[in-house]
Write a protein that binds this DNA or RNA. Structure first.
Lengths: 101, 101
DNA sequence: CCTACATTTGCCAATATTTGACAAGTCAAT
DNA sequence: ATTGACTTGTCAAATATTGGCAAATGTAGG
């Protein structure tokens, strides 16, 4: 996994002097799972991401962006057309956003 | 689904005056499944993509790019940070490619 | 060394998603 | 009404993802 998300939440947790155990219990998951999420061995569910933002008192959108970016990276990482595909997908997202208004 | 891939293979198939039945049998899948792939209701497996390129006598990388782009789009489409995340992921793909060298 | 505590590793069962097929449907041309 | 191309709906089997537990590893003090 890519893991910009995991690195960020680990840093935030440490800046707040919190233990995995403490954060995990607030998230209602067990410590090993949080450990895996921080190291990118597992991906957090979306719901966890927003709860994480509150617990770590940080911007939810930023967290969500990195979380999604990691997943995109993960999906594409083994393909040699990865970058090009990312551009194409980016364009179609843009078009979609315009329509949505 | 996003479906730039499906549209392309449908067009190529028609340009070649081929029936779904004919292409499907070469791919060793049944016609309804090909129909769904063309309309983006189902995603083709990666292996299918390259065999498709041969059958339709077209560039495999182009097909793969659209196929992957569709999947990226699909993963991100419901998030309002989709575009930003795509940019972030694109950057990390670029970095990864440099390292791979 | 021994202990206490934080984190990581390995594995498992439960659940969820994906897969491809089949049967039956629509639609158009004849 | 029949034929042929494509689509829709549904299903079981295979595969992947999930979260938890037990045990291992690391780390710091006494």
């Amino acid at each position: 996994m890519a893991n910009q998300f995991g690195e960020l939440i680990k840093n935030l947790r440490m800046q707040g002097n919190l233990l995995q155990r403490q954060v995990a219990s607030q998230l209602d998951i067990d410590t090993p799972l949080l450990s895996k999420i921080e190291r990118g061995e597992r991906t957090a569910k979306k719901e966890i991401v927003s709860r994480m933002a509150k617990i770590l008192k940080t911007n939810e959108k930023e967290l969500l962006t990195l979380w999604l970016a990691d997943q995109l990276h993960n999906l594409a990482k083994d393909e040699d057309v990865a970058f090009k595909a990312m551009e194409v997908a980016g364009k179609s997202i843009k078009t979609q956003n315009l329509k949505k208004k």
